[in-house]
Design a protein around this nucleic acid. Structure first.
Lengths: 63, 63
DNA sequence: TTATTATGTCCAAAGTTCTTGACATATTCA
DNA sequence: TGAATATGTCAAGAACTTTGGACATAATAA
């Protein structure tokens, strides 16, 4: 599963650290997800979507 | 996190077993998710959405 | 250049999801 | 009513996500 987190985060001008804080996780978690080490939980996917102002269906690309 | 899986599944007239097969998981997994024992992984959330013909953002209610 | 900030990566532990196998109850139907 | 199908639940273990701490490199700014 791919995602647009890094691109949207940069467009918003925030760091991995800031995004992590907003979502209640640590920086490494954001880093791993952006670099496709693993997918977030559904709950974190929703938090990321909310913080980045996009739908889950837009933020993640399934297939 | 709540979801509309049971309602949509029944509207489509399929069993937990059939939905499970379509999504590549076992029946207990569907049962647990419908009854809020735990949330699905993001990947399974997308599979469920695809099978039930709704967006992830519609199928799951965050907050 | 030097200091600071941001990002990438590693490891082990803790927590969550999913499976397998099984059994109980509920629902449907002949 | 009895048989078959559907749903609910349990427990142990495998697989995956997240954390905390640490260190390396990259990028930015003074």
């Amino acid at each position: 599963m791919k995602n647009k987190i890094k691109a949207i985060r940069k467009k918003l001008g925030i760091t991995q650290e800031q995004l992590a804080e907003d979502c209640g996780v640590v920086r490494q978690t954001i880093n791993c997800i952006e670099n496709n080490k693993y997918d977030p939980t559904l709950e974190l996917a929703f938090k990321l979507s909310k913080t980045l102002n996009v739908k889950v269906d837009e933020l993640f690309i399934y297939e």
